[in-house]
Design a protein around this nucleic acid. Structure first.
Lengths: 199, 199
DNA sequence: CAGCTATCGCAAGTCGACTTGCTTTCGAAA
DNA sequence: TTTCGAAAGCAAGTCGACTTGCGATAGCTG
């Protein structure tokens, strides 16, 4: 036997526990699928009690979404090629690619805002942050003179991102990457065609 | 007493039962909210056994979605003003207005495609039908010469509808009707700007 | 190192979605 | 009218999400 205790129940607390649980969740998600990623299963895999999960994340959806949101951070680039078109295409192609994976689809489904007030704030802020990143690309394009000053970055980004999300969530269409540049071109052309006296 | 039977347990079957249940579901949804619209509650309200609901609709989500889908049929117009811009604006303004209601939001949430194969076919076909209706408007515009022949109706419609859905589902933004004409203009301008030699 | 408290472990239980096996009855064809 | 299969009623039970109350302890603070 080792000199140390054989298997101290491996008490996890605070941030350490959080990390272990999120890792176990992502792992379960990838290997067993969303349906099998039950709260009890995650608790077992992470060596933590089920109640603790509920106390920290309140609901299963919060837990899984948190895990996926944290995990997805490393999946989306922040391109800066000097051209709005290229930047947007790169960013949203990566998004499309990610949404085509099981994890991406799950993230999208669980990232849906249901109630009004509660702690869904996490969901809202997550998407706001992601879309905000894309809006920055557009703003840089405006500063470079590629787009007119009256361009609405928010609307423009929504027009590109919305269809991608809608495909996955609504019609379940394959979401080929080829649509991304077509969408970007369509929307950018539309933005450039706008007359400045537009109200 | 009446000459007829006083209260024969009001046996409902087949199509009659279906109508009664869907009506009861919509009613519950409107008065008590989505959370209170439990399968047991619907069964009680419709005077039908819970098991019967499961046998016909398989899941609660299918039931509620079916009820809302049937109900929403009367909420969306099929405009024909002679101009693509006006037509699309009218159609999607109505959609935006509907999505702003509790029923509309619920429909959107429950209309989300989750699994792959099963009987989610209803969801997919529902949205395909709606979007197809909008695509017809675009096609008419092409025939009238308002848009070039290489216009992709599917992509164009997605570009307008996607952002509306995304707002409700993801960021939960208010979804003011004013964005609809702006979106329509943006996308139509983009479509008109496309060069025919585009691959 | 003693003390304190937020955090976690644990047991027991609620609730609603969904299933299964069996009986009853409607309703239409023979 | 008789008959017979599909559709509905009914009972009992599984399963997973979520709650509650209480006892145990980790781990920072003085």
């Amino acid at each position: 036997m080792t000199g140390k205790k054989e298997a101290p129940p491996l008490r996890r607390r605070g941030e350490r526990m959080r990390q272990a649980v999120l890792a176990a969740t992502v792992d379960l998600l990838a290997t067993e699928g969303l349906a099998a990623t039950t709260v009890a299963a995650v608790a077992r895999a992470a060596g933590v009690h089920e109640t603790s999960l509920y106390r920290r994340w309140k609901t299963r959806e919060n837990l899984v979404f948190d895990a996926l949101a944290t995990h997805s951070d490393h999946a989306l680039p922040t391109p800066d090629t000097g051209h709005v078109s290229t930047d947007l295409t790169a960013l949203f192609t990566a998004l499309a690619r990610y949404l085509a994976t099981p994890e991406g689809a799950a993230l999208l489904h669980l990232g849906t805002v249901r109630g009004e007030d509660d702690l869904e704030e996490g969901r809202r802020s997550y998407w706001s942050a992601r879309l905000g990143r894309a809006e920055a690309l557009v703003r840089r394009g405006v500063e470079r003179g590629e787009l007119t000053a009256d361009t609405d970055p928010h609307l423009l980004v929504e027009a590109v991102a919305g269809p991608l999300l809608a495909r996955v969530l609504l019609t379940g269409e394959p979401l080929e990457e080829a649509v991304v540049p077509r969408l970007v071109d369509l929307v950018l052309d539309g933005a450039r065609a706008r007359r400045p006296d537009q109200r």
